[in-house]
């Protein structure tokens, strides 16, 4: 079985983003970039499925400018077999990415598509569900466990009320949550070897992205800053302030 994995390049999760003074966007110049953490989890899961003999080939895909090849190389160092870069200099939203993936699903015929549940830059949490809808596939979002059965998979999902397990016919779309696995680090020899693995670069124009762009970002602002409060010296002082100053406890 072939697995298609989505890999997005985003700001490193440790970095606090800056807003441009003209409020048109965030400023990512000289910012440390990395693979979206949920995509790391998706790559790791695919690699584990290959190690278990369930997957036969892992194809990683990123939609973006040339620099996304860094993240595709990393995914191949971690165990992916080949990569597709869908090249565009323009910002693409989740809907366009989902359309690209829908076309790739038709071309590559994977048994499973693994995406992150959320990009930590846009915080959209949309692409997997949009793709599943477009491609007419079942979806299991926020996965914390995946088990293969005969011709189907069972996926445990982290939902607001607790946990839910679904059974899905294959092919299907699964999006990863934090507790699905703990991603490994790439080893130096594997990083060297990944340089020989192929990246197929294809312009976005080769894809039939039909969705009109209805969204326009008018402004990007820094959030209201919270004032740091005061340090209290004891539990008694804390309780007194909460009762008599903040009025939040009786």
């Amino acid at each position: 079985m072939k697995i298609l994995v989505g890999v997005k390049r985003v700001i490193d999760y440790n970095v606090q983003v800056r807003v441009r003074p003209d409020e048109t966007d965030v400023d990512l110049s000289n910012t440390k970039m990395a693979m979206n953490p949920f995509c790391e989890i998706a790559v790791e899961e695919a690699v584990r499925l290959k190690e278990q003999g369930i997957a036969s080939e892992i194809v990683v895909v990123s939609v973006g400018p040339k620099v996304v090849q860094e993240q595709l190389r990393l995914a191949m160092a971690l165990g992916a077999d080949r990569a597709i870069q869908v090249e565009t200099e323009d910002a693409v939203d989740s809907l366009a990415v989902a359309e690209v993936f829908a076309e790739l699903v038709a071309q590559e015929q994977p048994g499973l598509v693994l995406l992150g549940k959320q990009s930590i830059d846009s915080d959209n949490n949309q692409t997997g569900q949009m793709l599943a809808g477009m491609a007419g596939l079942g979806q299991a979002t926020f996965a914390s466990a995946i088990n293969f059965k005969e011709g189907c998979i069972q996926v445990t999902r982290e939902v607001d009320g607790g946990l839910q397990t679904l059974e899905l016919t294959l092919p299907a779309v699964v999006t990863t949550d934090l507790r699905l696995n703990e991603p490994r680090h790439a080893r130096l020899p594997d990083i060297m070897k990944s340089k020989k693995k192929p990246i197929d670069v294809r312009p976005l124009g080769d894809f039939n992205v039909t969705a009109q762009n209805y969204l326009k970002v008018l402004k990007v602002q820094a959030p209201a800053q919270r004032q740091a409060g005061e340090m209290v010296a004891s539990v008694a002082e804390l309780v007194d302030k909460l009762k008599n100053q903040a009025g939040v406890i009786a």
Binding site: N125, Q126, Q129, M130, T141, D160
Partner: peptide, 23 residues
């Protein structure tokens, strides 16, 4: 924007080929 809404609405959006604003 609960796990229920986040799971459902983008599927509708994908089928309608329309964008979604989250959160």
């Amino acid at each position: 924007a609960s796990t229920f809404g986040k799971n459902l609405l983008p599927r509708v959006a994908g089928i309608k080929r329309l964008p979604q604003l989250s959160d």
